[in-house]
């Protein structure tokens, strides 16, 4: 019975059935199924969502909506988890660099990474280099994510990394960057740890850092 509910929960997520998934999460919350097993089922579902996105079978609307379903169900289940296992996978500080007011890519990443279990600190758009550095010092995140759509502002990424070095926190945080203006090569030249072409890849990379 328990196994069937867990399979159903995962299936409702992958059918993009919000009502069905929430109904099952409520059933789990009031029944005998282990909460941790239900949370794992949702995580497994999200992994399939990410794979479908990366294979080009699903697009941003499906990715975002699946993230919303996962968030709604997790909101019901997380408060019921044992303290030891209820913490987020890690904290990620995210913002769009100074001079750039675009937030769509950043927001999609936040939506997906949050539903995958990370705690996200959103610094917003047009964030000056010192804003990123202060947030790293304050929140001690696992990763710092910077979004940059414009070629005109990509130099800001180097300024932030220099700022982290000056404040002696560069080796305490992984830096990941994404956005239309950026490439793998740019990330390497700027001294970032990784470039993410999309939200799913970015989340996978940070999950890998968390695991190691």
């Amino acid at each position: 019975m328990s196994g069937e509910i867990l399979e159903q929960l995962k299936a409702r997520l992958l059918d993009l059935d919000m009502d069905g998934a929430v109904e099952l999460a409520e059933l789990v919350a009031g029944g005998d199924v282990r909460i941790a097993d239900a949370v794992n089922a949702i995580s497994e579902g999200l992994e399939v969502v990410g794979q479908r996105f990366q294979r080009g079978e699903w697009f941003l609307t499906e990715l975002v909506y699946a993230g919303e379903i996962a968030r709604e169900t997790m909101d019901l289940l997380s408060p019921l988890m044992e303290t030891a296992s209820s913490g987020p996978l890690g904290t990620v500080v995210v913002g769009t660099v100074a001079g750039d007011l675009h937030d769509l890519g950043k927001d999609i990443f936040i939506n997906y990474a949050r539903s995958a279990g990370f705690k996200l600190i959103d610094l917003g758009v047009d964030v000056p280099a010192e804003g990123f550095v202060s947030a790293v010092k304050e929140h001690h995140p696992l990763a710092l994510g910077m979004s940059c759509l414009l070629t005109t502002t990509d130099s800001e990424i180097g300024k932030v990394i220099e700022g982290l070095k000056r404040q002696n926190v560069r080796d305490k945080v992984k830096v990941i960057i994404g956005g239309a203006a950026l490439t793998e090569q740019f990330a390497e030249n700027a001294g970032a740890d990784a470039f993410a072409p999309d939200a799913v890849t970015g989340t996978d990379i940070i999950r890998g850092w968390g695991a190691s």
Binding site: L16, M18, V64, Y65, N111
Partner: peptide, 11 residues
Amino acid sequence: GFVNFSKFVYQ
């Protein structure tokens, strides 16, 4: 907004 739009497409 894109998140709301994605939800409304299905809901």
